[in-house]
Amino acid sequence: MKHSLPYWHELPDLDLYLDQVLLYVNQMTISPDDIEQKKLTAAMINNYVKHKQLEKPVKKKYQKQQVARLIALTILKNVFSIQEISQTLHLLLQTNSSETLYNHFVDCMRNEENEETPEIIRYACQSVKLYYKTRQLTMELERSHHES
């Protein structure tokens, strides 16, 4: 599965309202070949804010940094718990900017990582890709059983 996630500079520069965030993040993270994938919902975002895994919106608007985090959370939560993701991001953000980390993540998901990509991001992306590959193989197996 190859995501064509937007890089930081491609994310909307305007602050977005909740419904715009949902539309944008779901368009960026749901791949056409995966019907099983769960969409991001308003309840999920509210929970992330409540549990301090996402900064509160300013005047009900979400900024680029929050959108980037939601894209990463939406993809990574298929494999890792939200607590694990937040804890790791917290540690990584002590030495890297959100922009740098997010762009490394996008590189990885696009199979374009380089030696500067933190090992933890590289392994997280590999885990996600293996998860998707397993899902794909399971669906193919189910199809072949239905056809026989």
Rank of each mutant, 00 (worst) to 15 (best):
K52R: 12
A68M: 04
T100P: 01
E55T: 13
V49T: 06
K61R: 13
V49E: 02
Q87C: 08
A68Q: 02
I75F: 05
F80Q: 11
I71D: 00
I85A: 04
Q87D: 10
C108T: 13
R69H: 01
Q83R: 11
L76Y: 07
Q65S: 09
K60S: 09
T95G: 06
K50W: 06
I85N: 04
H90V: 05
K61T: 14
L54Q: 04
L70T: 08
L70S: 10
K59D: 11
I75Q: 02
K64Y: 04
S81H: 05
Y102G: 01
K50T: 14
L76D: 05
T88K: 01
L91W: 09
E55S: 15
A68L: 03
L92F: 05
K52A: 09
Y62F: 15
P57A: 06
K56T: 15
N78G: 14
V58Q: 07
K77C: 12
S98L: 12
L54T: 00
I75M: 03
L73H: 06
T74W: 11
T95L: 07
Q87I: 04
T74G: 10
P57V: 10
H51K: 12
V49W: 06
P57T: 07
R69E: 08
C108P: 10
F105A: 02
T95K: 12
V106K: 01
L101D: 03
L101V: 03
A72V: 00
L92Q: 08
V67W: 00
N47G: 13
C108E: 13
S81R: 08
L76R: 05
K52W: 03
E99S: 10
